[in-house]
Simulated assay, not measured.
Amino acid sequence: MTITVRLRFFASLREKLGEGEALALPAGSTVGAAREALQARGGLHAEALARGRAVRAALNQKMAPESAVLADGDELAFFPPVTGG
């Protein structure tokens, strides 16, 4: 069984990857698995979402760890950390 999540990208990630897209994953996938699936595409996805890069995730508009399990229809957003001064 597969699920489909709606991806959204913000700030510098949006500039590189676009506004967002739909992503099909196996049921039971996590936020980390979604990131890995995007990295596996190579190119800009691999560069922007590489493990060494500081990237945060929000699941249905709430901060989420990479271990959070995704459900069909969820919104998953990736963005760089925000700093202020």
Rank of each mutant, 00 (worst) to 15 (best):
R35T: 04
E36C: 04
R35K: 04
K62P: 00
R41G: 03
A24D: 13
R41C: 05
R51Q: 11
Q39K: 14
R41L: 01
G32W: 15
A27I: 02
H45Y: 07
V31N: 09
S29N: 05
A40K: 04
L23A: 14
L44S: 08
R35H: 00
G42D: 12
A54H: 15
A57R: 08
A40F: 04
L49Q: 06
E19R: 08
G28Q: 04
K62H: 08
A57P: 12
R35E: 03
E47R: 00
E36R: 08
E36P: 02
G43N: 01
G52R: 15
G43I: 10
A34H: 13
A50D: 08
P65V: 02
T30F: 10
A46V: 03
L25Y: 11
A22P: 12
A58T: 08
M63F: 14
P26A: 09
L49R: 05
G52C: 09
H45C: 05
A40D: 01
E47W: 00
V55R: 01
R56I: 13
A37V: 02
A50M: 02
A40Y: 01
A37N: 06
A54C: 12
L23V: 10
A27C: 04
A33Y: 05
G20Q: 08
A24R: 10
G28M: 10
L59T: 04
K62R: 07
P26K: 08
Q61K: 15
A57G: 06
L59S: 10
T30W: 09
A58V: 05
L38R: 04
E47Y: 00
L44I: 07
Q61P: 14
A64Q: 04
R35L: 03
R35S: 02
A54V: 11
Q39M: 13
G20N: 06
G52W: 10
V31A: 10
E21K: 11
A24P: 11
S29R: 03
A57I: 08
L38E: 02
A24C: 10
V31L: 11
P26M: 02
V55G: 02
A57T: 07
A27K: 12
R35D: 01
